[in-house]
Write a protein that binds this DNA or RNA. Structure first.
Length: 527
RNA sequence: GUCCCCGUGGCACAACUGGAUAGCGCGGCUCCCUCCUAAGGAGCAGGUUAGAGGUUCGAACCCUCUCGGGGACGCCA
């Protein structure tokens, strides 16, 4: 049936609603609904009544979601690369909560594994240096200033307790790069450290480094208005035997085979490109094995749905994790993995050079101090997360209309100013007796229409996991408001008109604030 | 080499997932403060949605190919 005919049919069979003025068919078959005059004005009363609840919904009621994001290795402070995932995750959590989901935010702490051993050894070597030993620092060790800080703490509080003769430390160690193998070099040093210090002392250094850095990360995130409910320890997973259990279960189901001394999970049977090692020939379980155990554990804790926010470079891991869950009869479809692309920093039109190799990542803290929390949070989620973005530092820093954050915040501040003016001029606003019919010019209609669609935008933003929808919404709302503000005075002689306009302005302010709050951005009363 | 993502005015991005005349911001050019914050507003110029086919009432969006950019392909974490 041609669209226009179908539209006609719909129209003929439609019930009349009191909010409906008329219905028309247009273009190739669109059905246009015309609202009764005055209908959309009622949104003002609705907003002023619901306040911070306006925009919230219950579409996610009953769904328990575990949202895991950032989960960077605690081997150093967070850098700007982590910032996007942090901002995106925190914002998504806000959106999901606003739409009625039961959300738990979790940070997976990779506190086990070789990287952490390298970290502990790095700290210990710096400590030995401070204690007076002559140390040739390994090329593959962590070199940041924070390593010195931790070492200094160890030295200050425990003096010579952890001192060992450098000759012993470097005994029977493979040569370092460039002539030797830097990986073997550091691994040998780790072995020596464990042996010379003994497990108890080694663990102490290890935990000191770990706890210090987790604390640094926690504070970094907290200052960025990113809060977690649970910090989940990978080591705990191993120590509770869950990793072993996971491998055993795979074995019992016949999904594991041995080859070249290692244990392999036959992930190809579940759509992966190649099989994956879960236990190395030296007996150590792999990171992947921990991941399997971790995801089983998430489901075992009773969550209906899991969301992981990963860097786009982890794309290849999706198939294998889902394969493992499928093999173990877990609902792999309920594991949703959102990939976040990297953000390139630009300064005055030039890309800020960054590389993992040289460790020249700009710390997240530096960015925060530079452009401020609001701009950083806003900019990070301004673009779709799954696409590359250019982060313009100069623009984010700019305290001008060019800066979209200020543009939106300014609208909020302006309305606060209007309210102050009312108080100053002893004009009382009667929110119960608003003559909404007064709001009839095109600017006011535009604002009203925009206010009305906020709840549906919040829902869409949450369902599609796309916070930028709200960012765009706020920019549009601010735009309509500024335009209106410039065209008409709110505080006018006609009391009914004045009352209606200020009420609309206050409703606008409420929605701006609700939206900004969802984005983790402040809504200033003065600028 | 295999696989994944992307390509929209000079720049950076939207487009309610297949709908009406493809929008917004920067940048460029004009204008607007005896007036509630000019951190604002009004307007002009700028597009064959990388290119070529196809699917249908209709395509930036779906399919195929070409070109161009990015990423992933370890007994690393």
């Amino acid at each position: 049936m041609p669209p226009r005919e179908l539209a006609q049919l719909l129209l003929e069979n439609m019930e009349k609603a009191d909010w409906l003025e008329r219905v028309e068919i247009a273009g190739p078959g669109f059905v246009n609904f015309f609202l009764r005059a005055g209908y959309n004005q009622s949104v003002v009363e609705q907003i002023l009544q619901l306040q911070e609840q306006y925009g919230c919904s219950e579409i996610g009621r009953g769904q328990k979601i575990l949202l895991e994001f950032v989960s960077a290795n605690p081997t150093g402070p967070l850098h700007v690369g982590h910032g996007r995932g942090a901002a995106y995750g925190a914002t998504l959590a806000n959106l999901l909560k606003a739409t009625g989901h039961d959300v738990q935010c979790e940070y997976y702490v990779n506190d086990a594994g070789r990287q952490m051993d390298i970290l502990a050894t790095s700290v210990w070597l710096r400590y030995l240096d401070l204690a007076g030993e002559k140390i040739q620092f390994p090329s593959n060790a962590y070199k940041g200033d924070y390593i010195w800080d931790i070492a200094a703490t160890l030295h200050r509080e425990h003096g010579e307790d952890y001192r060992i003769d450098a000759a012993q430390v470097f005994a029977n160690v493979h040569a370092d790069a460039p002539n030797g193998d830097k990986e073997k070099h550091i691994d040998d040093l780790i072995d020596n450290a464990k042996q010379l210090l003994g497990s108890e002392k080694y663990r102490f250094v290890f935990d000191l480094a770990l706890n210090t850095l987790v604390d640094v990360i926690r504070k970094d995130l907290s200052a960025f208005v990113v809060e977690y409910d649970v910090w989940f320890s990978e080591r705990q997973l191993t120590e509770q035997g869950l990793v072993e259990q996971a491998i055993e279960r795979l074995q019992q189901n016949g999904h594991v085979y041995e080859q070249d001394g290692a244990l392999w999970f036959r992930s190809t049977a579940f759509g992966d490109e190649k099989d994956r090692v879960v236990q190395r020939d030296n007996g150590q379980t792999t990171y992947f094995a921990s991941d399997i155990a971790y995801h089983m554990n998430k489901f075992d804790r009773g969550f209906d749905h899991l969301i992981n926010i990963w860097g786009a470079d982890h794309h290849g891991y999706i198939a294998r994790v889902k394969a493992a869950l499928t093999a173990l009869k877990y609902p792999a479809d309920e594991l949703e993995i959102l990939l976040v692309q990297f953000a390139n920093l630009y300064e005055n039109g030039e890309q800020v050079a960054m590389s993992t190799r040289s460790g020249e990542f700009v710390p997240l803290r530096t960015l925060r101090e530079d452009v401020g929390n609001d701009a950083a949070r806003f900019f990070y989620v301004m673009r779709r997360a799954d696409q590359h973005m250019d982060f313009d530092l100069s623009l984010a820093r700019a305290q001008s209309s060019d800066n979209p954050v200020y543009y939106v915040q300014y609208a909020h501040a302006r309305i606060c100013s209007v309210e102050r003016q009312c108080v100053e001029q002893s004009i009382s606003i009667d929110l119960d007796g608003i003559d909404l019919q007064k709001l009839d010019n095109k600017h006011e209609q535009a604002v009203l229409k925009q206010l009305m669609v906020f709840p549906e935008r919040v829902n869409r933003s949450a369902q599609r996991r796309e916070p930028h929808i709200i960012i765009n919404y706020l920019r549009e709302l601010a735009q309509h408001f500024h335009s209106w503000y410039n065209a008409h005075k709110f505080i006018v002689d006609d009391p009914a008109l004045c009352n209606a306009r200020v009420a609309l302005a206050l409703a606008t302010r409420q929605v701006l604030k609700n939206g900004l709050t969802l984005m983790g951005v402040s809504a200033p009363e003065k600028m």
